[in-house]
């Protein structure tokens, strides 16, 4: 079953100060299946984030269409959870309040909402920071909180834009592992935009390589090694070198 489908989408921006247009994404086709984890890598400015925002409905394509489970994506919707680079938490709300936010549209009582939010925070391991404010948490913790909120939204599609770019290598590895476990357990479909090729290879079912400008998919890599064995896999090392070489040729 198809979770997300983009058909020949293009997005251009007009740069007023330079009086010219740049094509961030050009006639791009993309398909994500239910429960699949796809990473998008590519040089800076190749249109990765734009593509993710188009998937989330945060931007509308100039041509072509995006479909989520058969419905056209025209604006943001709670069935698609977009986690921006800065985690998108509201600074004046505690982690618990942030996670509870999407639950307010439901018919649950306040206590039920709190209970559900706590459950979501437990799943991502930040329940003990429920009363903390985003400014009091590390980058990784904020991303976990954003994930909890996505879980509270009960979105089956998670779109993450370089969520762990500010983290050190070790913290990133720990969170990656937790994330992998978490997504496969909840059978969520994920699109991850990342600069880390290794992270993409360790977590993904498919790695999409983009090149710009104009932004388009230049290659798709499918690691064959099972995810739990990828840490010490020779295939991953080979694919890593292969992707680096390809990206170098695009820069």
């Amino acid at each position: 079953m198809v979770e997300l489908e983009a058909k020949s989408i293009s997005k251009a921006y007009f740069l007023a100060h330079e009086n010219r247009c740049i094509v961030a994404v050009q006639k791009l086709d993309f398909t994500l299946h239910v429960g699949e984890f796809v990473s998008i890598v590519g040089p800076s400015g190749c249109g990765k984030s734009t593509l993710l925002r188009l998937f989330a409905g945060f931007e509308t394509p100039n041509s072509g269409s995006v479909f989520h489970r058969g419905d056209a994506v025209l604006s943001p919707h709670h069935s698609r959870s977009f986690i921006p680079q800065d985690s998108g938490l509201f600074a004046w709300l505690s982690i618990e309040e942030n996670v509870m936010l999407p639950l307010h549209c439901s018919t649950l009582s306040y206590d039920q909402k709190r209970e559900k939010a706590l459950l979501c925070m437990e799943k991502t391991g930040i329940a003990s920071f429920a009363k903390a404010y985003p400014r009091e948490l590390s980058g990784g913790m904020k991303q976990r909180a954003a994930l909890s909120r996505a879980l509270a939204m009960e979105s089956q599609l998670i779109l993450m834009d370089e969520p762990f770019s500010a983290l050190d290598e070790v913290s990133r590895e720990v969170i990656d592992e937790a994330m992998q476990h978490f997504f496969s357990e909840n059978r969520m479909s994920v699109v991850l935009v990342t600069h880390s090729i290794r992270e993409a290879l360790l977590l993904s079912d498919r790695v999409v390589i983009m090149q710009g400008l104009p932004g388009r998919i230049s290659d798709v890599i499918i690691p064959r090694t099972p995810k739990e064995k990828r840490h010490k896999s020779a295939e991953i090392e080979t694919l890593y070198k292969q992707i680096v070489e390809r990206l170098k040729s695009h820069v």
Binding site: F58, H78, F82, P84, H104, R149
Partner: peptide
Amino acid sequence: PQTFLMAKMMNLS
């Protein structure tokens, strides 16, 4: 504008 889009995504009244 992202703040409003996030709010819309969360279906806030």
